[in-house]
Design a protein around this nucleic acid. Sequence first.
DNA 1: AGTAAATATTAAGAATTCGTGATAATCTTC
DNA 2: GAAGATTATCACGAATTCTTAATATTTACT
Lengths: 226, 226
Amino acid sequence: MQKLKGIKVLLVDDEPNILEFLEMGLQDEGFEVMTAQDGMMAVTLAKQFQPHIIILDVMMPGMDGFEVCRMLKKSENVAIIMLTAKDEVDDRVKGLMLGADDYMMKPFSFEELLARIQARIRNQFPNLMEEVVHGPFRIDDRRKEILYNQRVLELSTTEYELLKYLVINQGLVLSKAKILDKVWGYDFGGDENIVEVYIRSLREKLKDKEHRLIRTLRGSGYRVDL
Amino acid sequence: MQKLKGIKVLLVDDEPNILEFLEMGLQDEGFEVMTAQDGMMAVTLAKQFQPHIIILDVMMPGMDGFEVCRMLKKSENVAIIMLTAKDEVDDRVKGLMLGADDYMMKPFSFEELLARIQARIRNQFPNLMEEVVHGPFRIDDRRKEILYNQRVLELSTTEYELLKYLVINQGLVLSKAKILDKVWGYDFGGDENIVEVYIRSLREKLKDKEHRLIRTLRGSGYRVDL
DNA sequence: AGTAAATATTAAGAATTCGTGATAATCTTC
DNA sequence: GAAGATTATCACGAATTCTTAATATTTACT
């Protein structure tokens, strides 16, 4: 498995045992870890420590996880994974989770948490991975730039997000529904046609006239071949 | 002027005013700063945060500065500067200070503290010194001046702070929300438009007619390219 | 080949975001 | 307290981006 270097993780939970358990485990994996036991502390620490990712328990005395998530998402570029007990998950909670990037139900295995963290990092900070270069593509997320054959592509935000998603999942077939979910968000009401429109725009900018780079798999979706 | 980058400082004092004053000043100088208001917290934070240097007030309720110093010096590789009120300094205190690397008597000027910190760092972490020239920009934080191509820019305070923030984070995309947070403060109530207005003013003074120096990334923010 | 479904292409208008100049409010300085 | 600089607000036009919808083309299947 790939090792991530210099990734900062902030753990927030009111149970010291869990906190310590996770802290030791993550440090062992090479993460830089800090911990907070309540919401206020979490917000303060997040501003100071500037973590890449926050593992955030929903149920806490005082300011709860939702509140913390809302406050930080506004201004900080950080991935948030929410933790919740299994029996707390109803629709209301699910709704509130939406600000987060991912969520997990307790109890979970440490391996699972690790996998989720890696997935988040890959998604949100692909430049921190040792592998930033996907064939002729180079994704620089901090600059919000994608290079194709050493040339900067002039992309709108949506085009950028879409191409990034496609390239990162290079080799996989991605259905339009899935693309819509990931790039436009689960609550996008419009037609799937918009994906086609954007794919076309990307192909044009990539001079992919023959559709060899971004392949159409009729009935299944699209796939980037490198 | 030489600048220190990535130096972590932990401030420990029970007076929030002093704490805040020093924190802002040091952050302004480019240090990574965290704060603690009592001895217990200081020890906990020191273990997690692994600061290069600790500024430690002697007189605190609960665990006092000596105690904290003793505990940390045993196991952590950290420089400690102790702070004490002038009238507390007798021979007994001097004796106890010996564990520390340096000490200062209150009141002291910020400049003095800076000098001491720099001296300590030079001594204990000589490999961390760095020059602060960002391409054609030279930021002189003591004079609150920014030079662009050897010319002094005539900037208002806000313009100065904004340009400094942009230049220091050169190459990164900074959202307007984030800029507001960092330059105007988290509690600024107004509209994000003010960022646009100031960006415009900076572009004018930088003669950046083509927006090549300060680029707009529509929907994402701004980015300085050097 | 004929047909239906899926995808591609295009263009137009809706919506959003940004830039700009004017102006009001606030703070400084003499 | 007048003059000047600075900061903040506002409104509107310009520019870009997003979305939709209508039409064309391709593909799969009978």
